[in-house]
Simulated scan of single mutants.
Amino acid sequence: MQQPLSPSGPTGASGASTRPKATRAQFLACDDRDMLRAARDLTRDLATARGEIYWLDLIASAGIGYGAMAGAILVSSVPLAVLLGLVSALALYRALMFIHELTHVHRDALPGFRLGWNALVGVPLLTPSFMYEGVHTLHHKRTQYGTVEDPEYLPLALMKPWSLPLFVLIALLAPVALLFRFAVLVPLGAILPPVRRMVWQRFSALSINPQFRRRPPEGEMRSRVFWQETCGAVWAWVLIGSMFALGWRPILIALAVVSFTATLNQLRTLVAHLWENEGEPMTVTAQFLDSVNVPPPGPIAEIWAPVGLRYHALHHLMPSMPYHSLPEAHRRLSDHLGLESTYQGANHPGLVVLVGRIARSTMGRGRG
Protein backbone atom coordinates (compact mmCIF):
# COMPACT_ATOMS: atom_id res chain seq x y z
CA MET A 1 0.00 0.00 0.00
CA GLN A 2 1.29 3.45 -0.81
CA GLN A 3 2.09 5.78 2.05
CA PRO A 4 -0.41 8.57 2.81
CA LEU A 5 0.41 11.85 1.14
CA SER A 6 1.91 14.40 3.47
CA PRO A 7 -0.06 17.47 4.58
CA SER A 8 2.44 19.68 2.82
CA GLY A 9 5.04 19.17 0.16
CA PRO A 10 6.59 20.47 -3.06
CA THR A 11 4.46 22.24 -5.60
CA GLY A 12 5.01 23.33 -9.16
CA ALA A 13 5.83 26.85 -10.23
CA SER A 14 2.16 27.67 -10.59
CA GLY A 15 1.42 26.53 -7.06
CA ALA A 16 -0.33 23.36 -8.26
CA SER A 17 0.49 20.00 -6.76
CA THR A 18 3.24 18.01 -8.47
CA ARG A 19 1.91 14.72 -7.12
CA PRO A 20 -1.26 12.86 -8.13
CA LYS A 21 -4.25 13.20 -5.86
CA ALA A 22 -4.65 10.76 -3.01
CA THR A 23 -6.95 7.87 -3.88
CA ARG A 24 -9.37 5.65 -2.01
CA ALA A 25 -7.13 2.61 -2.57
CA GLN A 26 -4.30 4.20 -0.60
CA PHE A 27 -6.40 4.36 2.57
CA LEU A 28 -8.38 1.12 2.63
CA ALA A 29 -6.33 -0.18 5.57
CA CYS A 30 -5.55 2.95 7.60
CA ASP A 31 -6.76 6.52 8.09
CA ASP A 32 -4.94 9.79 7.54
CA ARG A 33 -5.07 10.74 11.20
CA ASP A 34 -3.55 14.17 10.63
CA MET A 35 -6.43 15.11 8.38
CA LEU A 36 -9.06 13.72 10.75
CA ARG A 37 -7.47 15.57 13.67
CA ALA A 38 -7.37 18.82 11.72
CA ALA A 39 -11.03 18.44 10.72
CA ARG A 40 -11.93 18.07 14.38
CA ASP A 41 -9.71 20.77 15.86
CA LEU A 42 -10.04 23.52 13.25
CA THR A 43 -13.82 23.59 13.00
CA ARG A 44 -15.12 23.32 16.55
CA ASP A 45 -16.43 26.88 16.54
CA LEU A 46 -18.43 26.27 13.34
CA ALA A 47 -20.66 23.47 14.64
CA THR A 48 -23.65 25.57 15.77
CA ALA A 49 -26.63 25.63 13.42
CA ARG A 50 -27.93 29.17 12.95
CA GLY A 51 -31.70 29.04 12.90
CA GLU A 52 -32.13 32.41 11.17
CA ILE A 53 -30.12 31.17 8.18
CA TYR A 54 -32.05 27.90 7.94
CA TRP A 55 -35.49 29.51 8.19
CA LEU A 56 -34.76 32.40 5.82
CA ASP A 57 -33.20 30.12 3.21
CA LEU A 58 -36.03 27.58 3.42
CA ILE A 59 -38.87 30.12 3.30
CA ALA A 60 -37.28 32.07 0.44
CA SER A 61 -36.60 28.92 -1.59
CA ALA A 62 -40.09 27.51 -1.06
CA GLY A 63 -41.74 30.89 -1.71
CA ILE A 64 -39.89 31.42 -4.98
CA GLY A 65 -40.56 27.81 -5.99
CA TYR A 66 -44.31 27.90 -5.44
CA GLY A 67 -44.67 31.43 -6.79
CA ALA A 68 -42.86 30.52 -10.01
CA MET A 69 -44.93 27.35 -10.33
CA ALA A 70 -48.14 29.36 -10.00
CA GLY A 71 -46.84 31.72 -12.67
CA ALA A 72 -46.05 28.81 -15.00
CA ILE A 73 -49.60 27.55 -14.57
CA LEU A 74 -51.26 30.93 -15.10
CA VAL A 75 -49.31 32.47 -17.99
CA SER A 76 -50.38 31.83 -21.58
CA SER A 77 -46.91 32.21 -23.13
CA VAL A 78 -45.24 28.82 -23.51
CA PRO A 79 -41.63 30.15 -23.37
CA LEU A 80 -42.43 32.15 -20.24
CA ALA A 81 -44.14 29.13 -18.68
CA VAL A 82 -41.05 27.02 -19.37
CA LEU A 83 -38.79 29.68 -17.85
CA LEU A 84 -40.95 29.99 -14.74
CA GLY A 85 -41.12 26.21 -14.50
CA LEU A 86 -37.33 26.04 -14.53
CA VAL A 87 -37.07 28.68 -11.80
CA SER A 88 -39.66 26.78 -9.77
CA ALA A 89 -37.82 23.49 -10.15
CA LEU A 90 -34.48 24.93 -9.05
CA ALA A 91 -35.95 26.78 -6.07
CA LEU A 92 -37.98 23.78 -4.90
CA TYR A 93 -34.91 21.60 -5.39
CA ARG A 94 -33.01 23.79 -2.95
CA ALA A 95 -35.92 23.72 -0.49
CA LEU A 96 -36.20 19.95 -0.81
CA MET A 97 -32.50 19.42 -0.05
CA PHE A 98 -33.03 20.63 3.51
CA ILE A 99 -34.23 17.08 4.17
CA HIS A 100 -30.54 16.21 4.25
CA GLU A 101 -29.93 18.71 7.04
CA LEU A 102 -32.86 17.36 9.06
CA THR A 103 -31.17 13.98 9.39
CA HIS A 104 -27.95 15.41 10.84
CA VAL A 105 -28.68 18.56 12.86
CA HIS A 106 -29.59 17.81 16.47
CA ARG A 107 -33.35 17.93 16.98
CA ASP A 108 -33.02 20.60 19.69
CA ALA A 109 -30.81 22.86 17.56
CA LEU A 110 -33.63 24.11 15.32
CA PRO A 111 -36.95 24.10 17.22
CA GLY A 112 -39.91 23.56 14.91
CA PHE A 113 -37.81 23.27 11.77
CA ARG A 114 -38.77 19.66 11.00
CA LEU A 115 -42.48 20.50 11.32
CA GLY A 116 -42.05 23.65 9.25
CA TRP A 117 -40.10 21.85 6.53
CA ASN A 118 -42.68 19.09 6.28
CA ALA A 119 -45.53 21.60 6.09
CA LEU A 120 -43.82 23.76 3.46
CA VAL A 121 -42.02 21.15 1.40
CA GLY A 122 -42.11 17.54 2.59
CA VAL A 123 -45.86 16.86 2.44
CA PRO A 124 -46.63 19.15 -0.58
CA LEU A 125 -43.91 17.38 -2.61
CA LEU A 126 -44.93 13.99 -1.19
CA THR A 127 -41.47 13.48 0.27
CA PRO A 128 -41.98 13.81 4.04
CA SER A 129 -38.93 13.62 6.26
CA PHE A 130 -39.52 10.05 7.47
CA MET A 131 -38.42 8.88 4.01
CA TYR A 132 -34.88 10.06 4.80
CA GLU A 133 -34.65 10.07 8.58
CA GLY A 134 -33.33 6.79 9.91
CA VAL A 135 -32.17 5.88 6.39
CA HIS A 136 -29.51 8.39 5.48
CA THR A 137 -27.66 7.89 8.76
CA LEU A 138 -27.00 4.27 7.72
CA HIS A 139 -25.01 5.67 4.81
CA HIS A 140 -22.69 7.33 7.33
CA LYS A 141 -22.09 4.26 9.50
CA ARG A 142 -18.42 3.36 9.50
CA THR A 143 -19.01 -0.34 8.80
CA GLN A 144 -21.92 0.05 6.35
CA TYR A 145 -20.80 2.73 3.91
CA GLY A 146 -20.33 1.27 0.44
CA THR A 147 -21.54 -2.20 1.43
CA VAL A 148 -24.76 -4.02 0.49
CA GLU A 149 -26.26 -2.70 3.75
CA ASP A 150 -25.84 0.92 2.60
CA PRO A 151 -29.21 2.18 1.25
CA GLU A 152 -27.51 5.01 -0.67
CA TYR A 153 -24.66 3.23 -2.42
CA LEU A 154 -24.30 1.39 -5.71
CA PRO A 155 -20.94 0.71 -7.39
CA LEU A 156 -22.07 2.70 -10.43
CA ALA A 157 -18.53 3.19 -11.76
CA LEU A 158 -18.17 -0.60 -11.88
CA MET A 159 -21.46 -1.31 -13.67
CA LYS A 160 -22.39 -1.51 -17.34
CA PRO A 161 -22.61 1.67 -19.50
CA TRP A 162 -26.39 1.54 -19.87
CA SER A 163 -26.79 1.75 -16.08
CA LEU A 164 -25.88 5.46 -15.92
CA PRO A 165 -28.58 6.93 -18.19
CA LEU A 166 -31.12 4.52 -16.69
CA PHE A 167 -30.11 5.60 -13.17
CA VAL A 168 -30.75 9.27 -14.02
CA LEU A 169 -33.80 8.97 -16.26
CA ILE A 170 -35.77 6.70 -13.93
CA ALA A 171 -36.12 9.74 -11.65
CA LEU A 172 -38.48 11.26 -14.22
CA LEU A 173 -41.13 8.85 -12.92
CA ALA A 174 -40.64 9.79 -9.25
CA PRO A 175 -43.62 12.23 -8.95
CA VAL A 176 -46.10 9.74 -10.40
CA ALA A 177 -44.67 6.95 -8.23
CA LEU A 178 -44.96 9.09 -5.10
CA LEU A 179 -48.53 10.10 -5.99
CA PHE A 180 -49.45 6.42 -6.41
CA ARG A 181 -47.72 5.48 -3.15
CA PHE A 182 -49.60 7.99 -1.02
CA ALA A 183 -52.95 7.98 -2.81
CA VAL A 184 -53.28 4.21 -3.30
CA LEU A 185 -50.76 2.15 -1.37
CA VAL A 186 -51.00 3.99 1.96
CA PRO A 187 -54.83 3.63 2.25
CA LEU A 188 -54.61 0.05 0.97
CA GLY A 189 -51.91 -0.71 3.51
CA ALA A 190 -54.15 0.56 6.31
CA ILE A 191 -56.55 -2.23 5.40
CA LEU A 192 -54.13 -4.99 4.38
CA PRO A 193 -51.12 -5.52 6.71
CA PRO A 194 -49.09 -7.44 4.06
CA VAL A 195 -49.34 -4.46 1.72
CA ARG A 196 -48.35 -2.16 4.55
CA ARG A 197 -45.23 -4.23 5.31
CA MET A 198 -44.26 -4.36 1.64
CA VAL A 199 -44.72 -0.61 1.17
CA TRP A 200 -42.71 0.18 4.28
CA GLN A 201 -39.85 -2.16 3.49
CA ARG A 202 -39.45 -1.28 -0.19
CA PHE A 203 -41.10 2.07 -0.93
CA SER A 204 -40.58 4.20 2.18
CA ALA A 205 -36.97 5.29 1.84
CA LEU A 206 -35.08 7.59 -0.49
CA SER A 207 -32.58 4.86 -1.32
CA ILE A 208 -30.86 3.76 -4.51
CA ASN A 209 -29.81 0.27 -3.38
CA PRO A 210 -32.48 -2.17 -4.67
CA GLN A 211 -31.45 -4.72 -2.04
CA PHE A 212 -32.23 -2.39 0.87
CA ARG A 213 -35.21 -3.33 3.03
CA ARG A 214 -36.28 -0.87 5.70
CA ARG A 215 -36.86 -2.07 9.24
CA PRO A 216 -40.12 -1.19 11.08
CA PRO A 217 -40.16 2.25 12.74
CA GLU A 218 -39.59 2.38 16.48
CA GLY A 219 -40.25 4.81 19.30
CA GLU A 220 -41.32 8.34 18.40
CA MET A 221 -40.67 7.62 14.74
CA ARG A 222 -43.84 5.50 14.62
CA SER A 223 -46.06 8.44 15.51
CA ARG A 224 -44.14 10.72 13.14
CA VAL A 225 -44.59 8.25 10.27
CA PHE A 226 -48.31 7.92 10.95
CA TRP A 227 -49.01 11.64 10.80
CA GLN A 228 -46.73 12.32 7.85
CA GLU A 229 -48.22 9.46 5.85
CA THR A 230 -51.75 10.50 6.76
CA CYS A 231 -51.12 14.08 5.64
CA GLY A 232 -49.41 12.81 2.51
CA ALA A 233 -52.34 10.57 1.60
CA VAL A 234 -54.85 13.39 2.11
CA TRP A 235 -52.74 15.78 0.03
CA ALA A 236 -52.34 13.18 -2.74
CA TRP A 237 -56.12 12.92 -3.07
CA VAL A 238 -56.43 16.71 -3.03
CA LEU A 239 -54.05 16.80 -5.99
CA ILE A 240 -56.05 14.13 -7.82
CA GLY A 241 -59.29 15.96 -7.06
CA SER A 242 -57.84 19.20 -8.39
CA MET A 243 -57.91 17.74 -11.89
CA PHE A 244 -61.71 17.75 -11.78
CA ALA A 245 -61.93 21.25 -10.33
CA LEU A 246 -59.08 22.98 -12.21
CA GLY A 247 -58.45 20.79 -15.21
CA TRP A 248 -55.30 18.90 -16.23
CA ARG A 249 -52.97 21.84 -16.84
CA PRO A 250 -52.07 22.71 -13.21
CA ILE A 251 -51.22 19.20 -12.09
CA LEU A 252 -49.35 18.36 -15.30
CA ILE A 253 -47.17 21.44 -14.92
CA ALA A 254 -46.62 20.67 -11.23
CA LEU A 255 -45.65 17.08 -12.07
CA ALA A 256 -43.27 18.31 -14.77
CA VAL A 257 -41.59 20.72 -12.35
CA VAL A 258 -41.16 18.07 -9.66
CA SER A 259 -39.99 15.55 -12.26
CA PHE A 260 -37.23 17.94 -13.34
CA THR A 261 -36.31 18.48 -9.69
CA ALA A 262 -36.10 14.73 -9.06
CA THR A 263 -33.97 14.20 -12.16
CA LEU A 264 -31.58 16.99 -11.19
CA ASN A 265 -31.22 15.45 -7.74
CA GLN A 266 -30.53 12.07 -9.31
CA LEU A 267 -27.84 13.62 -11.49
CA ARG A 268 -26.30 15.18 -8.37
CA THR A 269 -26.46 11.80 -6.66
CA LEU A 270 -24.62 10.28 -9.64
CA VAL A 271 -21.60 12.50 -8.93
CA ALA A 272 -21.84 12.66 -5.12
CA HIS A 273 -19.40 9.74 -4.94
CA LEU A 274 -16.93 8.03 -7.23
CA TRP A 275 -18.80 4.75 -6.67
CA GLU A 276 -15.65 2.66 -6.84
CA ASN A 277 -16.18 0.43 -3.81
CA GLU A 278 -17.07 -3.22 -4.42
CA GLY A 279 -18.68 -3.88 -1.05
CA GLU A 280 -15.84 -4.04 1.46
CA PRO A 281 -15.88 -1.91 4.64
CA MET A 282 -13.79 1.25 4.33
CA THR A 283 -11.87 3.56 6.61
CA VAL A 284 -13.20 7.07 7.17
CA THR A 285 -10.45 8.43 4.91
CA ALA A 286 -11.31 5.96 2.15
CA GLN A 287 -14.97 6.95 2.43
CA PHE A 288 -13.95 10.59 2.22
CA LEU A 289 -11.91 9.99 -0.95
CA ASP A 290 -14.76 8.00 -2.51
CA SER A 291 -16.92 11.11 -1.97
CA VAL A 292 -16.84 14.39 -3.87
CA ASN A 293 -16.24 18.06 -3.12
CA VAL A 294 -16.81 20.58 -5.92
CA PRO A 295 -15.47 23.72 -4.22
CA PRO A 296 -15.30 27.26 -5.62
CA PRO A 297 -14.42 29.07 -7.81
CA GLY A 298 -17.56 29.06 -9.87
CA PRO A 299 -21.19 29.38 -8.71
CA ILE A 300 -22.67 26.61 -10.89
CA ALA A 301 -22.17 23.82 -8.34
CA GLU A 302 -24.29 25.78 -5.86
CA ILE A 303 -27.21 25.34 -8.27
CA TRP A 304 -26.98 21.57 -8.87
CA ALA A 305 -25.54 20.76 -5.40
CA PRO A 306 -27.23 23.27 -3.05
CA VAL A 307 -27.45 23.46 0.74
CA GLY A 308 -23.83 22.44 1.28
CA LEU A 309 -23.92 19.40 -1.00
CA ARG A 310 -21.08 20.72 -3.13
CA TYR A 311 -18.96 19.82 -0.06
CA HIS A 312 -20.23 16.24 0.09
CA ALA A 313 -16.84 14.68 0.90
CA LEU A 314 -16.25 17.20 3.69
CA HIS A 315 -19.72 16.35 4.97
CA HIS A 316 -18.61 12.73 5.29
CA LEU A 317 -15.77 13.88 7.53
CA MET A 318 -18.09 16.02 9.67
CA PRO A 319 -21.71 14.83 9.19
CA SER A 320 -23.15 17.17 11.83
CA MET A 321 -21.56 20.35 10.49
CA PRO A 322 -24.33 22.81 9.45
CA TYR A 323 -24.44 23.48 5.73
CA HIS A 324 -23.74 27.19 6.14
CA SER A 325 -20.44 26.40 7.93
CA LEU A 326 -19.03 24.04 5.28
CA PRO A 327 -17.47 26.75 3.04
CA GLU A 328 -15.46 28.16 5.95
CA ALA A 329 -14.51 24.67 7.15
CA HIS A 330 -13.28 23.85 3.66
CA ARG A 331 -11.23 27.05 3.51
CA ARG A 332 -9.58 26.36 6.86
CA LEU A 333 -8.71 22.76 6.03
CA SER A 334 -7.40 23.66 2.59
CA ASP A 335 -5.18 26.42 3.99
CA HIS A 336 -3.92 24.33 6.89
CA LEU A 337 -3.30 21.02 5.10
CA GLY A 338 -2.00 22.42 1.83
CA LEU A 339 -2.04 21.33 -1.80
CA GLU A 340 -0.17 18.08 -1.15
CA SER A 341 -2.62 16.82 1.47
CA THR A 342 -4.97 13.90 1.37
CA TYR A 343 -7.78 16.43 1.70
CA GLN A 344 -7.20 17.64 -1.86
CA GLY A 345 -7.89 14.15 -3.20
CA ALA A 346 -11.65 14.63 -2.75
CA ASN A 347 -11.80 17.97 -4.59
CA HIS A 348 -13.02 17.80 -8.18
CA PRO A 349 -13.53 20.49 -10.84
CA GLY A 350 -17.18 20.04 -11.79
CA LEU A 351 -20.21 18.06 -12.91
CA VAL A 352 -19.13 17.36 -16.49
CA VAL A 353 -15.70 16.06 -15.46
CA LEU A 354 -17.23 13.78 -12.83
CA VAL A 355 -19.86 12.35 -15.18
CA GLY A 356 -17.12 11.76 -17.75
CA ARG A 357 -14.98 9.92 -15.21
CA ILE A 358 -17.78 7.56 -14.20
CA ALA A 359 -18.84 7.07 -17.83
CA ARG A 360 -15.28 6.13 -18.85
CA SER A 361 -15.15 3.63 -16.02
CA THR A 362 -18.40 1.98 -17.12
CA MET A 363 -17.28 1.96 -20.75
CA GLY A 364 -14.19 0.07 -19.67
CA ARG A 365 -16.44 -2.45 -17.93
CA GLY A 366 -18.60 -2.66 -21.04
CA ARG A 367 -15.60 -3.66 -23.13
CA GLY A 368 -14.49 -6.17 -20.53
Rank of each mutant, 00 (worst) to 15 (best):
R360D: 06
Q201A: 15
S204H: 07
R214A: 04
C30E: 15
L270W: 07
P124N: 00
Q3H: 14
V123Q: 00
E220G: 15
L339R: 15
R44T: 11
D31N: 14
G279V: 05
S291E: 08
P161E: 00
H273R: 01
Q26T: 09
A245F: 13
T147K: 03
T342P: 02
G356C: 02
A272E: 15
Q3L: 14
F27R: 03
L354S: 08
G189E: 06
H312D: 05
L339N: 12
M1S: 14
L56E: 09
A177C: 10
V258G: 00
L239R: 01
T127Y: 11
T23K: 12
S361M: 08
E328I: 08
A22I: 04
R37F: 05
S17A: 12
A68V: 05
H316S: 00
P194I: 06
T285M: 07
L289Y: 04
T143M: 10
P187Q: 09
A174C: 06
L56Y: 10
A25E: 13
E152D: 13
L317I: 08
A329F: 03
A157N: 06
V294T: 10
E328D: 11
V352Y: 07
L120K: 01
P281M: 04
H316L: 04
V353I: 09
L5A: 14
P327T: 03
C231Y: 07
I303D: 08
R268F: 10
L267C: 08
A272W: 01
L74S: 12
G338L: 01
V121A: 00
N277D: 06
G134T: 06
